[in-house]
Design a protein around this nucleic acid. Structure first.
Length: 598
RNA sequence: GGGGAUUUAGCUCAGGGGAUAGAGCAACUGCCUUCUAAGCAGUGGGUCGGGGGUUCGAAUCCCUCAAUCCCCGCCA
């Protein structure tokens, strides 16, 4: 219904050449059409030479005229001069095709780059507004696996994208550091724990305890805990009951339970931090679920005050949401009075609203929790808060062998993935760039490896499920980060070779490839705005891939350093520099670094 | 049983009412005396899951069926 340009011109406070051009086109077309017509301004497919187009089919009915006649009328009646963005118009197949005034547009795009500098592409839509982004959120005492990377990488990118749209961004790592799983771990530790082993290899040993617990629980419980649905009859299972008791103790502040819990948390955080450092992930807050433990009473109190909960016969507290269109009720307190994730998430929502007064609270969490978040957000409404909260869901990561399962030890450690990527990148560098110093090769390999892994997740839309595949994730050619990084490095190499003679004169750009590249670069701000609106990093990723392709066309056909005139050389170099800037900024939005050579 | 997501080239995916449906990988043909071959140029490859409907126009919207995955109270 709305084209990106349409939305953008409404919400953007900053403006770029393409916005101004779009505004002029809209105004002039509106004048001729009269009234307040819907104008579907779009960029035509590549085989059409025009820069913008407006389909005139929708007007045919009311105007009682053939679409192409309308297009022709528009083309005839709109008058333009040398100071207009519109260069010329033509009617074709029912479209009004618009060609930009190239000298004017070129000059303005150049000055946009000069004006905005490093922040080219940014806008101030979010000025004065705050967003809280809940992402990564791994579980303590479990390894950081390939299942954790989607939230981490997508969350960080959305964080960057919102910052580029002018928002104050607060990233919160909502650690899974509370809940019955700790009861399980505490009980397993009581039975089989070995401090020495844990110290030597913390995460793997804690994982062993966790896995052993479940193996044992399955044994003890007979067929009570079936493989498909471990939770269905867990109350029958003595192991699970012991675990629940331990969690209840922890929740009530038992000293020994707390001491062990704290130890496990520290061990895990040390491990996670290594990965976050390597990935360049930054959080403003690391408040786990445990942080909200003493804030759940208020949630229960609020629920009671508002009268939205139902106390069940067994003592548990339930909220029914049928009137809100959700037929599944949500449980907010267990029969033993202990809190649940829902209670803590609600406490988290309230805390964030009070502390930061955000415009949006985002949860970057897998789509298997979709219903759960719908419920939570409805409850938030019912409790009388009107802050916008969105669940940014994404598809599941599974293995070729099937679903991942921490409790069965069927996981791929992220550490292994990044190490493999690093080794593969290093090997290629040793073959291709023996001229670089070993230290530099190590650095480049790291940047390339991290880039490849992140881009793999960020270049496709979030909703798809993904089957983990080493070769796909670690691909270095085709539509990948290394391809873009390589394109950037080549350009940097070219820029290093340039000498400063010659003057930048935008009017010297007359080749069609030059203008298509420039026009493409001018659409970067649109991609930045659109990616935020859609919570979709892949819009940036796709934009960069297409931009690199257009750059290649330019680069293949237009000589830069070998151009005839030194002013042309200087101007083309400037264009190349702008390309490099967009590539670097765009990759940065995805959390991907660039290197000067590779 | 109810709800949600997905289904586009051999494979992985873009495109979400408008011009002849696009990339990458894989396959095939060329290209390192020419700004870095993680590259470039080119070729082949499609009933956009099936069937109905709405529309001047449908991969795109609606209905229906099918397949895959996920969710549906004491795990997170």
């Amino acid at each position: 219904m709305n084209s990106p340009t349409e939305i953008k011109s409404d919400i953007l406070i900053t403006d770029y050449a393409m916005d101004r051009a779009a505004r002029e086109i809209r105004e002039k077309v509106s004048e001729v059409l009269g009234g307040n017509p819907e104008i579907d301004l779009r960029v035509p497919p590549p085989d059409i030479a025009a820069h913008f187009a407006i389909p005139c089919f929708p007007y045919a009915k009311t105007m009682r005229k053939a679409p192409n006649a309308i297009a022709q009328e528009l083309a005839d009646k709109i008058t333009v001069g040398a100071d207009n963005y519109i260069g010329r118009l033509e009617a074709l197949n029912g479209y009004l095709n618009i060609y930009l005034n190239i000298p004017k547009t070129t000059g303005e795009i150049f000055s946009d780059f000069e004006t905005y500098g490093n922040s080219y592409g940014c806008n101030s839509t979010g000025k004065g507004k705050t967003v809280v982004i809940d992402f990564s959120s791994p579980n303590i005492a479990k390894p950081f696996s390939v299942g954790n990377i989607r939230s981490t990488v997508i969350g960080q990118s959305i964080y960057n994208i919102y910052a580029a749209n002018g928002y104050k961004t607060i990233g919160d790592n909502h650690l899974g550091d509370w809940g019955t799983q700790f009861g399980k771990l505490l009980y397993a530790y009581e039975l089989w724990g070995d401090d020495e082993k844990i110290r030597q290899n913390p995460i793997k040993e804690l994982l062993n305890l966790y896995v052993k617990f479940h193996a044992e629980a399955k044994q003890v419980g007979g067929n009570a805990a079936s493989e498909e649905d471990e939770n269905s009859e867990t109350s029958e299972n003595p192991m699970e009951n012991e675990a629940r008791k331990r969690f209840k103790m922890l929740e009530e502040g038992d000293a020994e339970a707390t001491r062990l819990w704290k130890w496990f948390v520290d061990l895990s955080l040390t491990d996670f931090d290594k990965i976050y450092n390597r990935l360049g992930i930054h959080f403003d807050l690391t408040l786990g679920e445990s942080f909200y433990n003493d804030k759940t009473d208020e949630v229960i109190k609020l629920i009671n005050e508002k009268g939205i909960g139902t106390r069940e016969a067994d003592g548990s507290l339930l909220i029914r949401l049928d009137e809100q269109g959700i037929t599944t009720p949500i449980l907010v307190q267990k029969k033993d009075g202990a809190s649940l994730y829902a209670t803590r998430d609600l406490a988290g929502l309230i805390y964030r609203i009070r502390e930061y007064n955000p415009d949006i609270i985002m949860y970057v969490v897998g789509s298997e929790q979709k219903l759960y978040f719908q419920q939570c957000l409805k409850v938030l409404d019912l409790m009388g808060f009107n802050t916008r909260a969105v669940h940014i869901d994404f598809g599941m990561v599974s293995l070729k062998e099937g679903k991942m399962s921490t409790r069965e030890g069927r996981v791929i450690f992220f550490e292994d993935v990044i190490e493999e990527a690093y080794q593969r990148a290093l090997k290629i560098l040793e073959e291709k760039r023996p001229d670089l110093s070993p230290e530099e090769r190590l650095e480049i390999a790291e940047v390339v490896a991290v880039g490849a892994i992140k881009f793999n997740d960020l270049s496709q839309s979030r909703q798809k499920n993904v089957v983990f595949d080493w070769d796909k994730m670690l691909a270095f050619d085709g539509d990948t980060a290394p391809y873009l990084q390589y394109s950037y490095a080549r350009v940097m190499s070219l820029l290093r070779k340039a000498d400063a003679a010659g003057q930048v004169m935008p009017e010297l750009l007359t080749e069609p490839e030059e203008f298509s590249l420039l026009r493409r670069l001018a659409r970067f701000p649109e991609a930045v705005a659109e990616a935020a609106k859609e919570f979709a990093p892949h819009i940036i990723a796709q934009y960069l891939i297409e931009t690199a392709r257009i750059f290649t066309e330019f680069y293949g056909r237009v000589p830069v350093l070998k151009a005839a005139d030194e002013n042309i050389i200087a101007t083309r170099l400037q264009l190349v520099r702008y390309y490099a800037e967009v590539m670097k900024s765009g990759l940065a939005l995805l959390g991907i670094k660039t290197v000067e050579r590779m």
